[in-house]
Design a protein around this nucleic acid. Structure first.
Length: 221
DNA sequence: GCGACAG
DNA sequence: ATCTTGTCGC
């Protein structure tokens, strides 16, 4: 199947690929190198796709890639992966190191068709992936105020993710499995990556670089 | 049927 | 997503 151009084609591809998603963790999975992915948009149709790679233990930066491009696919809730996938895949291809885990800005299986951006990136790359979204696509009960507290995100009687409190006193983030990992492990990794702020360090740094590269195009051609 | 709907 | 600095509060 070629890359979708229309809404119908995009939905068909999600329905087809969703069956490839694996929601269990390889017993040998050792997350030492993590990647954070994000895309920022300028006032026009320009975008900057960023992948930052961090040491999972020290959170020190190991590598970063910026890809400048444009968008063809319109923003449609449930299909926004089709706006960002091409540029993000290009960026991933330019990494000097292969990450053990992809931390994506958006949903994994906590998605209307159980195939959000994190699933798509995971299935396409074969790398374990998780989705960390700033807002949910399903209703949720507020978790307790303590860091680490969480409640289930439920769709059609299935637990598809969690509302996870990464810091007391701040809104929770919405974690779901992308590919080749389980929900418990996904949440544990998010907590490890967010020792100080609401969002994982991967997402924060990728988002920051996104703005910088759009503000000063000369710094990252 | 209508509204809501990751970024 | 983006428009946007300083400021109030824990």
């Amino acid at each position: 199947m070629t890359w979708p151009t229309t809404v119908d084609e995009a939905i068909a591809l999600q329905e087809k690929l969703r069956y490839l998603v694996v929601t269990t963790t390889d017993p040998d999975l050792d997350v030492r190198v993590v990647a954070g992915l994000d895309v920022g948009y300028a006032a026009d149709d320009r975008l900057a796709a960023v992948v930052v790679v961090l040491d999972a233990t020290t959170l020190e930066p190991l590598d970063e890639v910026v890809v400048h491009g444009t968008t063809d696919f319109p923003y449609v809730p449930g299909l926004f992966a089709f706006r960002e996938m091409p540029s993000l895949m290009t960026a991933l291809g330019k990494l000097a190191v292969t990450p053990d885990l992809l931390v994506c800005d958006g949903q994994g299986v906590a998605h209307p068709r159980r195939f959000g951006l994190a699933c798509h990136l995971g299935v396409e790359t074969g790398i374990p992936s998780i989705g960390v979204a700033k807002s949910p696509m399903v209703s949720f009960a507020p978790p307790g105020d303590a860091r680490g507290s969480h409640t289930d995100l439920v769709m059609d009687d299935d637990v598809v993710g969690r509302a996870l409190r990464t810091q007391s006193g701040v809104k929770p983030v919405f974690v779901s499995v992308g590919h080749k990992i389980d929900l418990d492990r996904a949440c544990a990794e998010v907590l490890r990556l967010a020792p100080r702020y609401r969002l994982p360090e991967t997402t924060r740094q990728a988002d920051q670089l996104t703005r910088l590269s759009l503000r000063d195009p000369t710094e990252h051609p």
